[in-house]
Amino acid sequence: MKTIWFDIDNSPHVLLFRPIIEILKSEGYNIIVTSRNFAQTLPLLEKYNIPYIRVDGHGGKNKIKKVFTTIKRAYGLYKVLKTYKIDLMVNHGARAGIIAARMLDIPIISAFDYEHTELLLIKLFSDRIIIPSVLRGLFSGSKFYYYNGLKEEIYLCDFKPDNSFLLNFPFDTNSDKPLVTIRPPASHANYHNKSSEIIYNYVLKYVLQNNCNVVLVPRTNVDISAVQNLSDNIYIPSKPLDGPNLVFYSDLVISGGGTMVREAAVLGTPAYSIFTGKPASIDIELVKQGKLTFIRTLADVTKIKIQKKRSRELVIPNTNVRDLFIKIILEKIN
Rank of each mutant, 00 (worst) to 15 (best):
D176A: 03
Y200A: 02
A271P: 10
Y249Q: 03
V215Y: 15
N245L: 09
N213E: 11
N245G: 14
V180P: 00
F171E: 11
Y249N: 10
Y191I: 11
P170F: 08
D242H: 03
N190T: 12
L230P: 11
V207E: 00
G257L: 00
N163R: 13
Y202L: 06
V203W: 00
S273I: 10
K194Q: 09
I234P: 08
N190R: 14
D251N: 03
D242Y: 01
P218Q: 00
F275P: 04
D223W: 05
T220M: 08
S195R: 11
V266G: 07
P184G: 00
L167P: 04
S187F: 13
H188T: 15
A264W: 01
A226F: 06
M260A: 12
P270Q: 12
M260D: 02
P170I: 07
L208I: 05
E197N: 15
P178Y: 08
R219C: 14
P237R: 05
R262M: 11
G256M: 02
S196C: 09
S195G: 11
V253C: 01
Q209W: 05
F275A: 04
P240L: 14
V261L: 01
L167T: 06
F275H: 02
N201M: 04
N213D: 10
N233H: 07
I199P: 09
A280N: 09
A189F: 05
N163E: 15
L246D: 13
V217A: 15
V207Q: 01
D162Y: 03
N213M: 10
N168G: 11
H188S: 09
V253L: 05
D223R: 03
D242L: 06
P185M: 11
A186K: 06
L216C: 02
S195K: 13
S231N: 07
D223C: 10
N211S: 14
V261K: 03
L216A: 08
T181Q: 03
N233S: 15
L216K: 04
D232F: 06
E263T: 12
N211M: 04
H192R: 07
D242M: 12
L204V: 05
K239P: 12
E263Y: 11
Y272N: 07
S225T: 01
L167I: 11
T181A: 07
F248P: 14
V203H: 05
V214M: 02
N193V: 09
K177D: 02
Q228P: 08
P240T: 14
S164Y: 09
F275K: 04
S187L: 11
A265K: 03
K278T: 12
N190M: 04
D172V: 06
D251I: 01
L208W: 00
P170N: 10
A189K: 13
A226W: 10
L216Y: 12
V203N: 04
V261Q: 12
N174H: 07
Q228C: 12
V207W: 00
A226R: 14
V247Y: 00
L230K: 13
V261A: 03
I234W: 10
I199M: 07
L246H: 00
N210W: 10
D176L: 04
V227R: 01
Y202C: 14
K239F: 15
I199K: 01
L167N: 13
M260I: 15
L246P: 14
R262G: 13
T269M: 01
Q209D: 14
P185D: 08
T181M: 07
F165Y: 14
Y200V: 09
D176R: 06
L216M: 06
V215E: 05
K177P: 00
N174C: 08
N210D: 10
V215H: 04
